[in-house]
Design a protein around this nucleic acid. Structure first.
Lengths: 342, 342
DNA sequence: GAATTTTATGTTAACCCTATCATCCAGGCC
DNA sequence: GGCCTGGATGATAGGGTTAACATAAAATTC
C-alpha cells in the first residue's frame, strides 16, 4: 500500500526540479548531448532513478523525433515461412532498440494498403513489406513518400525500393536439375499462387532447366484450391505422358501434392520423384523425407530489418538496392536419393 | 512532378482555415461530437479530403487519448502455435482498428520484462502476454498498473489478471484415456518445458488418468534438449517396463520422440502407441498420421484480443476472468487406431 | 589581461491536438 | 419583452518534449 495515489508519471520538469537544474539539461543528459558536465549528469540520473522517470513518447514524437519503431506487413503470419521471417525481424529490431508493429494482410491488397496507411500515420520510421500485389497502385505513392520501405521476398514493380529476396530462379533450377540428374525426362511442375513474382521466377527456372537439358516442355499445373489437386494429378498420371518426377514450386503445392499422392497410392521417391521449393523442418518426418529447396527465412528477416534500420539512420544512402539471397537444395529421399539411416 | 515540396502534413488549423471554421469545430467533426451542424460538418469533411488531412497521432496521445494499439508478447513467434495465436490476435485487433505491437521474449523473462516495460511507457492501451515465468516478480507490478493485461495460454501466479487458456488437464486425460481404451497398461509420458504451468497441468492429467484406471504410475520423462531424447528413450524401451504407449505432453516432445522412434526402428501405432498434446497440420503427413490433442490456437488469440479490447473500452468491468477453452482429440493412427484411407 | 573560443546551462517557442470555458444566437416560456 | 435553455462555435490553455537562441562562466589565445 505504498502509492495508492494515481501517481502521475514524472515529467522532465519534475526531474529538473529534483536535480536542481533546468529542463533542458535533463533532456540533454537523457539524449547524450555533449555539454553536460559529468557532475550535473550524475545528479540528473539520480533524480531520474528516484522518480522512475520515463520520457513521454508522444511528446517526443510531437517534436519530430524518430519513433524507433518499424512496421512489418506480411501476408499471413500463421504461415511458417513468414512467421520465421517475422521472428527474425523482431529480434533484429529489438537488438537496435526498435519495436515492431505487425500486421497481416491476409493476401488482400486493400487490407495491406489500410495497414500501411495506419502505420505511416502512427508514425513508424520505416516499413518492411511483403507486397501481395506487386503492381498495386498505392505502392507508388508509398514508395515516393518519406517513409523508407524495404520489401521482403517480392520486389514491387511499379516503383523502385530496396528489396531483399531469394534466388528463386536458381533455386528452381537446382531442384529441377537434381531431378534431371536422376535420369528423369518427363518432369512436371505444380504450383499455387502463380500470380506472385516469386512463383513466376521459379516457373521460369523450371522451364529453363528443361530447355537446357532438351527435355520435353510441360506446362505447369496451376492449382488454386486444395480440392482441385487430386483430380488434376489423377489426370496427369493417367495420361500417356505420366510424369516421372514432380517439381512443386511452393510449400502449399508440395503439401497438397504429397497428400494427393498418398491418397492415390503413388509412392514418392519410388513411383515418382518429388522435389519441392520451400523447405520446412517437418519434411524430415514425412515418409519418405522430402527433398526441397531451403530458403533462408531468418536471414531474409534479419537482412531486410538491418537494411531498413540503416536507411532510417541515414547510414545508407545509395540508391535502392536489390539483395538476393542464395538458397540451397536439401537432399532427402523423395527425389529418389537413398539416404542411409545408419 | 506534382508536389516536389516537402509537403508538410496538413494540421487541424489548415483544415479549419480551408473550411472557414475554428479548429475545434474540425476536431469535433472528426471525433463525432454532437453540436456540429450537418452543414458545417460537410464543409469540414470536404476540406479534410481536399488536404488529405490525418490527425497527428502523437499530438492526440499527448492529450491523453487512447493509442488504439495493443502489445502482444509471445515466447517465440516462429513456433507454429504462437504464430497462429498471433495471427488471430492481429486480425481481431485490426477489425477494431487497433494496431498490434509484437514482441518475442525468446523464453527469456528479462527480455519479456523489458518489452513489457517499453510497451507500458510507449503507451499501448493494453497488453496480451504469454508469460515465460508465471511467477516473475515484475508481473506483480505490471498487474497492479493501469494498463489492462490479458494473459494467453498461461495465467500468472503472483497476481490476478484476465487470462485465456485451454483445458490442459482435461486434454491430457482425453489423450491418455484413449490410450487406455486401446488396452495399454504401461503408459509413459514425455515432456519438455516442464516448468511451464500448462505442461504441469498436462502431467497432472496424465497421472490422474493412470490413477483412475489403477494403472502403474510412471514418472514423466522430462527432456531439456533434443540430443537427450534418444538415449533416454532407448533406456526406457530397454527396461523390463518397456512402455506400450506414449503420451507426449507438448509439440516439441512429440516431434523429438517421433524422430527418435524412427531412428530406433520402433514403429508408432504398431510397436508403440503414441498420442501427443498439441496438434499441427502436418501430423496428417507423418507415417502413421499422429493422433493428438488439438488446441484452438486461433480461438485463443481471438478470445484474448476481444477480452482485452473490451477491457480497454471499459465494456467489461467484472473482476478478472479466467477463460478456459476446450480442446479436442484428433484421432489418427499413431495411437493404434486404424483409419481407412478408402 | 583583453579578446576570443569553448563549455555549460537556461529561456522561449513550437509541435498538434483536445478539454474547458466563454460566447452567441435562436427559440420557448410566462 | 425579459429570462431561460440548449445548440453551435470559438478562444484559451495546456499536455511533455526538443530546437534554437541567449546567457554565463571557464578556458584558451595572443
Amino acid at each position: 500500500m505504498r502509492k495508492s495515489l494515481p501517481a502521475k508519471r514524472a515529467t522532465l520538469e519534475d526531474v529538473a526540479r529534483v536535480a536542481g537544474v533546468g529542463a533542458m539539461t535533463v533532456s540533454r543528459t537523457i539524449n547524450g548531448h555533449p555539454y553536460v558536465s559529468e557532475e550535473t549528469a550524475k545528479r540528473v540520473r539520480a533524480a531520474i532513478r528516484q522518480l522512475d522517470y520515463r520520457p513521454n513518447h508522444a511528446a517526443r514524437m510531437l517534436t519530430g523525433q524518430l519513433s524507433r519503431s518499424i512496421g512489418l506487413i506480411v501476408p499471413d503470419l500463421a504461415d511458417t515461412f513468414f512467421s520465421i521471417v517475422s521472428h527474425a525481424v523482431q529480434e533484429t529490431a529489438r537488438e537496435s532498440g526498435y519495436l515492431v508493429w505487425l500486421a497481416a494482410s491476409n493476401d488482400d491488397p486493400a487490407i495491406e494498403a489500410a495497414q500501411v496507411e495506419q502505420m505511416t500515420h502512427h508514425p513508424v520510421d520505416g516499413i518492411l513489406l511483403v507486397p501481395v500485389d506487386s503492381k498495386d497502385r498505392y505502392l507508388k505513392t508509398l514508395a515516393s513518400g518519406a517513409t523508407p520501405i524495404v520489401t521482403i521476398d517480392r520486389p514491387i514493380e511499379v516503383a523502385t525500393t530496396d528489396s531483399v529476396g531469394v534466388e528463386n530462379r536458381a533455386g528452381a533450377r537446382m531442384a529441377v536439375e537434381h531431378l534431371i540428374h536422376h535420369g528423369h525426362a518427363r518432369i512436371a511442375c505444380v504450383a499455387t499462387n502463380t500470380h506472385l513474382l516469386t512463383i513466376k521466377e521459379r516457373l521460369i527456372g523450371f522451364e529453363e532447366s528443361l530447355r537446357h537439358a532438351r527435355l520435353p516442355m510441360t506446362k505447369a499445373l496451376r492449382l488454386s484450391n486444395r480440392d482441385a489437386v487430386k483430380p488434376a494429378l489423377a489426370e496427369m498420371f493417367a495420361s500417356r505422358n505420366r510424369p516421372e518426377a514432380l517439381f512443386t514450386a511452393n510449400n502449399a503445392s508440395t503439401i497438397w501434392v504429397i497428400e494427393a499422392l498418398r491418397e492415390m497410392k503413388i509412392e514418392m521417391g519410388k513411383h515418382v520423384a518429388l522435389v519441392g521449393f520451400d523447405d520446412v523442418d517437418f519434411f524430415t518426418l514425412i515418409t519418405p523425407p522430402v527433398t526441397a529447396v531451403r530458403q533462408p527465412a531468418a536471414e531474409l528477416g534479419r537482412m531486410s530489418a538491418r537494411l531498413l534500420l540503416q536507411r532510417i539512420k541515414g547510414e545508407f544512402t545509395a540508391s535502392s538496392v536489390r539483395t538476393v539471397l542464395p538458397v540451397s537444395l536439401v537432399i532427402r529421399e523423395s527425389c529418389g536419393c537413398y539416404k542411409r539411416t545408419d
